[in-house]
């Protein structure tokens, strides 16, 4: 009749639930304080709003990556998918405003299709997702080069670029609110609601123990495939925002997959699945961006970005691994 009680220490620390968002909130708070000391202006509405808008793509990618990781898989293809989307958009729109909306829809469909293929190859053909999405990464890189003869062609319309560039002006208190931030908030709320739904709870259960899920009637392959589709859709939205903000290049999506994975891990989501919150993943991305901003303020070389990312991934996984094995 007894349950294993967490040992009560004489001096009780606030109980940190594994997979909760408390640790990442604490880290974020520390960074905010550090930024506030070094560069107080940064926290004033104008630059803060613009920072949040700039961070929207990576935060969305982290949310997309979260769905895949929490279900027990990986998606390494999102970076090259973003590049492909931006290049495709430029060539198809070819500066014609009338083509903006059809192309936006096409990009979303393209993202969903790539996710679908990733998902089906992983679940039905039983290729480990690490390999599936690495293969997809390479396929997209090559295909885009081939399709555009080595240099991006065409151009984005101003209508297309406004998603990543423009803002609601003169909002009370906040001032200038980028469209990207609004898109982010809407989709973040949708992601949270999705994770509270039957689908969301089932997705985490699949990552926790797919055998149990299967024997309880869950179609594990469908659930995981849907997670890949969500990741592909997130990449499409990120591409639309990024294309508008920073323009068309073959480097548009470079390294974003690792940024997203780092963010997810930093946000307390267990690699291998089954634990963690989507809010944690998004806060992880925000924290990462803030860290890079801080490094910038302190004049640390931008070349250190990937080193820092690598170190964070190793550290975060090591911390969560030792914590869960010490139980």
């Amino acid at each position: 009749m007894q349950t294993v009680q967490p040992r009560s220490l004489p001096l009780r620390l606030p109980r940190v639930r594994p997979g909760g968002v408390l640790p990442i909130l604490a880290i974020l708070a520390v960074l905010v304080v550090l930024v506030g000391i070094r560069q107080p202006d940064f926290l004033a509405p104008p630059s803060l709003m613009s920072f949040l808008g700039r961070s929207a793509p990576i935060i969305l990618l982290a949310a997309g990556q979260y769905f895949v990781i929490v279900s027990g898989e990986f998606d390494l293809s999102v970076g090259s998918l973003v590049t492909a989307q931006v290049v495709v958009a430029a060539r198809l729109i070819d500066s014609d405003p009338a083509r903006t909306w059809p192309v936006v829809l096409l990009l979303l469909a393209f993202g969903a299709l790539v996710g679908l293929v990733n998902g089906l190859v992983t679940t039905r053909l039983r290729v480990p997702s690490f390999i599936t999405t690495l293969g997809m990464f390479l396929i997209l890189v090559g295909a885009v080069y081939l399709w555009s003869d080595g240099a991006p062609k065409g151009g984005l319309s101003e209508e297309f670029r406004r998603f990543g560039r423009r803002a609601f002006e003169d909002v009370p208190l906040l001032g200038r609110v980028p469209y990207a931030l609004v898109v982010l908030v809407v989709l973040a709320v949708a992601a949270v609601l999705l994770m509270r739904s039957d689908f969301g709870r089932t997705l985490v259960a699949v990552g926790d123990n797919p055998r149990t899920a299967e024997l309880s009637g869950v179609r594990v392959w469908r659930t995981r495939t849907f997670a890949f589709i969500l990741s592909g859709l997130a990449a499409a939205v990120a591409a639309i925002l990024l294309g508008g903000y920073s323009g068309v290049s073959f480097q548009a999506g470079n390294g974003l997959e690792f940024g997203a994975i780092t963010a997810v891990v930093l946000g307390g989501v267990a690699l291998g699945g089954g634990r963690g919150a989507v809010v944690g993943a998004m806060l992880g991305a925000l924290t990462l961006e803030l860290l890079f901003a801080l490094m910038n303020f302190y004049g640390v070389s931008g070349a250190l970005r990937s080193t820092v990312q690598g170190a964070i991934i190793l550290l975060a996984v090591a911390v969560s691994a030792t914590r869960s094995s010490s139980r």
Partner: peptide, 30 residues
């Protein structure tokens, strides 16, 4: 079907009691 291997295929260990109890209803009769 209540399986013999409770740990390996009967529970989703890191989910809540409620989520475990709801697993099958959500999957099939949602």
């Amino acid at each position: 079907y209540v399986t013999e291997d409770r740990k390996g295929e009967g529970i989703v260990p890191r989910q809540s009691v409620l989520d475990n109890a709801l697993l099958a209803s959500r999957a099939v009769f949602a």
